[in-house]
């Protein structure tokens, strides 16, 4: 807020506007004034139920997950000093997805409401354990990437195996659709499940600014500026695992937000990694809210998946950015 008040205010206003849009747009077609009144009233009317049980958790989850992905993406890019890094790189989202897929396959997801997210969180936790065992407390950033790629590949292979062995096409289709990512039919239970973990992750990631700034000068220089790289890496991995694991557990895999948002906002904060963290969190929330509104406006009756939209918007945007970078001769 301090360094770039104009940008931060604009992003905050954008998030608030999109949050309102997310609350007010939906197939139930409630008039805006009525919708807001019902939301505040919270009585037993159908309108109040729609607002409190369907639209509010959906909008809240979009903000939480979007902010998480933006923040984790900015932190990951800052740590690896690479604009192509993204939170999924360390394999946590792939492993969380694997846990969810196993829950869907074994019927755990159907047997009780939180079966799927809890299985996904277990997958994420396993991935972090494996990652830290592979990359070790003293490993460098390269070891972390390689370990992350190995964990991702393993999770991907096991997910494919579950799909492969799936007894009927309906089960396979359910898994495939789940993996595309969506915020449809999520409840406040999902919000309360994800929020504590995400809050821990936000605190861990938000504390990285100083170390990430110092890393601009490389690992050796950062260390002699008093930054403990071991602690920084541990906080990054734990924070990313918390936010991405919790996000994937409740909404499935949503790509490109953590990659594109920091990239777009970097020039606006003078490329400073510490300033990019809060900006990217707001930007991520805005992007996911916008995508979730778009899902309802474009093809409302076809259940367009959120992850599909973010990738459809994100990939061309990313290509454009690469094009622009190339044109600058870098």
């Amino acid at each position: 807020m301090r360094d770039h008040p104009g940008l931060m205010t604009a992003l905050l206003a954008l998030v608030l506007a999109l949050f309102a849009a997310s609350l007010l747009i939906g197939p139930a077609g409630i008039a805006p004034a009525q919708a807001l009144a019902a939301l505040l009233r919270g009585d037993a009317t159908a309108e109040a139920l729609v607002m409190r049980e369907i639209r509010l958790p959906r909008a809240l989850l979009a903000v939480m997950i979007g902010a998480s992905l933006g923040l984790a993406g900015a932190a990951m890019q800052g740590y690896l000093r690479n604009p192509l890094a993204e939170p999924g790189l360390i394999g946590v989202s792939g492993s969380a997805a694997l846990g969810a897929v196993i829950a869907l396959q074994t019927g755990l997801a159907a047997s009780f409401a939180l079966g799927l997210p809890l299985a996904a969180l277990a997958g994420a936790a396993l991935a972090v354990g494996l990652l830290l065992a592979l990359a070790g407390p003293r490993g460098g950033s390269l070891t972390l990437i390689l370990a992350g790629i190995a964990v991702s590949a393993l999770a991907g292979a096991l997910t494919a195996l579950v799909l492969n062995l799936s007894p009927n096409p309906f089960a396979a289709a359910e898994i495939v659709f789940w993996m595309m990512g969506s915020l449809v039919d999520r409840s406040m239970t999902h919000v309360w499940l994800a929020l504590p973990l995400m809050a821990v992750g936000w605190v861990l990631l938000a504390g990285l600014g100083r170390g990430l700034d110092a890393l601009t000068l490389g690992e050796d220089a950062a260390e002699t500026l008093g930054i403990s790289l071991t602690r920084l890496r541990l906080m990054l991995v734990a924070g990313t695992a918390c936010v991405v694991g919790a996000g994937t557990a409740v909404a499935g895999a949503i790509g490109f937000v953590g990659l594109v948002v920091p990239h777009i906002l970097r020039p606006f904060v003078g490329a400073r990694p510490s300033a990019l963290l809060p900006a990217s969190a707001l930007g991520g929330a805005a992007m996911l809210l916008a995508a979730d509104v778009a899902v309802r406006l474009v093809l409302p009756d076809r259940d367009l998946k959120l992850g599909v939209v973010t990738a459809l918007v994100g990939a061309p945007l990313f290509l454009h950015l690469i094009w622009r970078t190339r044109a600058e001769g870098l």
């Binding site: 000093r81 000068l217 490389g218 050796d220 002699t224 500026l225 008093g226 930054i227 003078g270 990694p273």
Partner: peptide, 30 residues
């Protein structure tokens, strides 16, 4: 140590397009 010694490594890394004065200000971190 960060207040006792400044180290200029051989590899001249500047990871991001930060302004020159912002980069120099990193020396004040300790």
């Amino acid at each position: 140590r960060a207040r006792a010694v400044a180290w200029m490594p051989q590899s001249r890394e500047i990871a991001w397009p930060v302004a020159v004065e912002t980069l120099i200000a990193l020396g004040r971190l300790p």
